[in-house]
Simulated scan of single mutants.
Amino acid sequence: MKRVPISLSLTMSTPRHSVFRPCIDLHDGKVKQIVGGTLSDTAPEGLKTNFVARQSAGEFARMYKEHNLEGGHVIKLGPGNDDAAKEALAAWPGGLQIGGGINETNAKEWLDAGASKVIVTSSLFPNAKFSLEKLKTISSAVGKERLVIDLSCRRRGSKWLVAMNKWQDITDIEVCKESLDLFSEYCSEFLIHAADVEGLCKGIDEALVQKLGEWVRIPTTYAGGAKAIDDLNLVDKLSGGRVDLTYGSSLDIFGGTKVKFEELVERNARDPSNRT
């Protein structure tokens, strides 16, 4: 039987601590770290890239497998990434989630390719309007336990609104307790990028993380702005251990100088909530 880390299988009522979740962001077939707010179909010349890896997506997947860092996500940012994504999934079948262009017609293909779960956003928001019918359809097609909903968002005043299409288009859904309660009826996890701070290495959106800790009832991963290993402790404190953290551009395996991958591996390994 496949071993599932306790941190991913516990109910939210069980005491736990926030842990590090790995990622593989793909752009033009390569592993990259990009400033999220600069992604654009209409102005590609404005794209700001922090890092382009020499290693393949499969090499990153094998590294995560070696350290048993399950629950990470592979995100395809635009076209030209399918081969790299499938390489990563083949390198660690059942160890990674996949997102980017996933819908009810191709989700099974990606699960068959080795994804533990599929991650969806844009397919739930035709014309940037939420469709409960679309959500019910894909949840039924893959099963609630194999569905992750990406509710990555941009801040507008005192609210966070879900952003789709590489975070370019603002939808009609606010990230709040009511929306998270609704979505959690149809999925097993949330992935939430704070798009406004993604890739900037200037700190997490503390207010959002604190609110997520109050609102979520299922496992949730936050990404955006993490710049120090202490940010994992901060997320743990702000969310009451209900939210996990992904590091990107600050991490040494992605060319960063602020956070060491090995330290995060050690942090996860000694955390009682991440042991079977």
Rank of each mutant, 00 (worst) to 15 (best):
S273K: 03
M164P: 00
A90I: 09
E174Q: 08
K202I: 09
L245W: 10
K134A: 04
S273I: 08
T49F: 00
S152M: 00
F20M: 06
A269I: 02
T221I: 02
P219R: 05
Y64M: 02
D25G: 06
Y186Q: 14
R217T: 12
G143I: 05
S184L: 04
T257Q: 14
M164F: 04
F254L: 10
K260M: 09
N103A: 11
V31D: 09
L264M: 08
C187Q: 06
A228T: 14
K108M: 10
L77A: 13
T11M: 03
P44S: 13
I170G: 08
K134C: 01
L39Y: 12
I75Q: 11
Q33H: 11
A53M: 00
K237H: 12
G241R: 03
R267P: 05
L264N: 08
A207C: 14
E262T: 10
R54S: 14
K76Q: 14
L251I: 12
F183E: 02
L232N: 10
S139V: 02
L232Q: 06
K48L: 12
V243S: 06
T49M: 02
W167A: 06
K166T: 13
V35S: 01
I138M: 03
K129C: 04
S179P: 08
K202A: 07
G101V: 07
V162Y: 00
L124Y: 01
G58Q: 15
V148P: 02
T257D: 14
P93A: 13
A88N: 15
V74R: 11
D28T: 14
W215A: 08
P272N: 13
G224W: 09
K30W: 08
T257K: 15
L200P: 03
I253C: 09
V4I: 14
I218Y: 05
A223E: 06
K30G: 09
W110V: 04
H193W: 04
E174M: 02
K134G: 00
S188N: 03
K32T: 15
A90W: 04
P22T: 11
E133R: 03
S131C: 01
E45R: 09
H27Y: 15
S188K: 01
G37F: 02
I229V: 11
V74Y: 06
K177P: 03
G255C: 05
S140D: 12
G241W: 01
R270G: 14
Y222A: 05
A115N: 13
H193F: 01
A57M: 08
E178T: 08
A91I: 05
I229P: 00
I149L: 02
S116G: 11
F261C: 03
F261L: 00
I192T: 07
L69W: 08
P22G: 07
E185I: 03
V148L: 13
R62T: 14
E178F: 02
I119C: 05
V142H: 09
L232D: 10
K32A: 11
K86N: 11
